[in-house]
Amino acid sequence: MAFHEIRFPTQLSFGAVGGPERRTEIVTLASGNEERSTPWAHARRRYDAGTGLRSMADMETLIAFFEARMGQLHGFRWKDWSDFSSASAGQERTPTDQVIGVADGATTRFSLTKRYGDGEAAYQRPITKPVAGTVTLAVQGLPLTEGPGFTLDTTTGEIVLTDLPVSGAIITAGYDFDVPVRFDTDRIEMSLETFNAGQVPRIPVIEVRP
């Protein structure tokens, strides 16, 4: 098994259906009260790549990509058009979009994250597949340039600062990102007749974890 650092064709992922999935375990007590818990620290996203198909040319593109990944065997990048940026919807990304750490005077390595919600209930999502060329960084609001100021691993989302920031400095970042996924099926069934009749195959895609 391997992960291919290649993005699923964006003209096909646009219009696809999907989003985050959580797993909640619910136990109903004799009193009628519930106890709820989850074994998952992070959501897992699912999509249907079939809903993005609009022509037989799209189908050929999909099959070529599917064969190159050998079905479920190899992972790949997926652009979630509803959630692909550090910035709020409709806003330009900036180096201060997301707080990714607070300097402790000893650490230069930080990982990209995205915050959902506010307060104690806020969820911090690990971002492991940033898009090359989109990542900007700031320390205490002062922008850094990739190369002289920091290095980025686009396969893990890890950032290493060139200079050690002073203790208490806020590290922020702006970026676009992909979701690491794989096909959740080893079979695609399609015919020219059904496609021209407006029917599209269901092609499930599921997020993979590092």
Rank of each mutant, 00 (worst) to 15 (best):
W40C: 01
D178L: 05
L12D: 02
T61A: 13
T24R: 00
G15L: 13
I127Y: 02
D184W: 01
G119Q: 02
A43I: 06
G101N: 06
F150M: 06
G174F: 04
G101R: 06
T128S: 09
V166T: 10
A64Y: 08
T136D: 09
M56S: 11
L144C: 04
L142W: 05
T38M: 02
T51Y: 11
K79E: 14
A16K: 05
L152W: 05
G19K: 05
E25P: 00
G117T: 07
E207T: 07
G119F: 03
G147F: 11
E21P: 00
I206M: 13
S111F: 15
Q199N: 15
W78V: 10
G168N: 05
L164W: 08
W81Y: 14
G119V: 01
F66W: 15
W78L: 06
R202C: 06
F177D: 01
R109F: 10
G198R: 13
T128M: 07
D184E: 05
D163E: 12
G18Q: 10
S86F: 14
T185G: 02
P204W: 14
Y47H: 13
S13Q: 03
S191R: 08
P95W: 13
R125I: 03
F110P: 07
E25Q: 04
D184Y: 00
A138M: 04
I159S: 02
A173G: 02
L62Q: 08
F150C: 04
I206T: 15
L137D: 06
A89M: 14
E34F: 00
S111V: 11
E193Q: 15
E92R: 12
T145R: 10
P9L: 11
R93W: 12
I171M: 03
T156Y: 07
T151R: 06
E120Y: 13
A68Y: 06
R187G: 00
L29Y: 01
L62A: 11
D83I: 10
F66K: 04
A106P: 00
H74L: 10
A49W: 08
H42T: 11
P201G: 09
G147W: 12
S88L: 13
F3K: 07
D184L: 01
G198V: 13
G50C: 08
G117Y: 04
V131H: 07
A30T: 05
G18V: 14
R36N: 00
V166R: 10
A41I: 14
R109C: 10
F76D: 01
